[in-house]
Simulated scan of single mutants.
Amino acid sequence: MKVLSAADVRRAVPMSTAIDAVREAFRELAAGKFVLPPRQIFGNGSVLVMSAYHTPTGTAVVKKIGIALDQVPAIRATVIWTGGGDQLVADGGSITTLRTGAVVGVATDLLAPADASRLTVIGTGAQAPDQVRAVLAVRRIADVTITGRNADRAAALSTALAGEFPEVKFTPSTSIEDSLDADVICCATSSATPLFDVGALPDRVHVNAIGAFRPTMRELPRNLLASASVVLVDQIEAALEESGEIIDAIDSGALKTTDLLELGQALSAPPQTSGRTVFKSVGIGPQDWAIAAALARA
């Protein structure tokens, strides 16, 4: 049995590799090559169990996540991957942030303007750094604004990422409204209410939202979902079960289920885009499988 720490995960799977692995996993999901049981949710979302079985290889992944938003880190998880006689146990927190960043990289590459150069990340928690790494892996970003309620945390994260990407300008901010003039916006918060109004956004922008993972949480306003040229989700079934933004928009009549496009399908037939586009992710098992499989091969 191979046991891997967070540092081991980072050394073995760089973001570019993670993006390629997750992209292929979504193509295979759309082709029916995964058995994907519903996510098990306990304690009002404080404990999650996710699994996926890859039929072509006979390999499977199970992830247990403990979430405590008032603690640091907020996510504590363990991933178990099995295949044949092999078994891998790895730090699930690092896999979760890596695969969440990777799926945002896939969606951004698909939907964001080809000439995008300005990125804003709203949120300074554990997910934020991989949101930056993923978008920088697929677009030539020159300016990044890190926005959070705590000025010290926004400044510290900006400084750390500037050391990693010295060619990029990083600016910390505590004002969401002043940070929205961007080509790509990544929302990575635990907000229960929309972070901004659609009228404050540029006419052309791609928005990723990965922070809200419960029906009671919302990062995006319903009028953004109603007016976007594309509303992309990782999986419709999961979004209807767990995404507060999607549930609210559909319940209010602002959005129909038929307006949603799954990522795997979009990779096979890229949609026409204009104006504003949205990717909403709640995370599904094939993403964890993709990273774990890459670790097993490393």
Rank of each mutant, 00 (worst) to 15 (best):
E242H: 15
T82K: 02
L180R: 01
R76G: 00
G253S: 08
R276A: 01
D143G: 01
A31D: 15
I19C: 07
L267Y: 07
A294R: 13
A126P: 00
T147Y: 01
A107W: 02
R297C: 10
I250N: 08
L110V: 11
L36N: 06
G105T: 08
P270K: 12
S281I: 13
H54S: 05
C187V: 05
Q87L: 13
L4F: 11
L69F: 10
P73Q: 07
A238E: 05
L29I: 04
V49D: 04
P166H: 10
S252E: 13
D70A: 10
P194L: 05
S5D: 09
R204G: 04
A290M: 04
R11S: 10
V13W: 05
S274E: 15
D251H: 14
L260P: 09
G123Q: 04
S158H: 09
D143R: 15
G264F: 00
A77L: 10
V121L: 15
R10G: 01
Y53A: 10
R118N: 14
Q40P: 00
G93T: 14
G283Y: 01
Q235N: 12
Q287P: 01
I176W: 02
I247N: 01
A154K: 03
G244C: 11
L180D: 01
V106F: 03
R11C: 02
A6E: 04
V121E: 09
L225T: 09
T55A: 12
L161K: 11
I185A: 10
S94P: 00
V205D: 10
T78V: 15
L267H: 05
V233H: 03
S94Y: 03
S191D: 07
L225S: 09
A200E: 15
V233F: 00
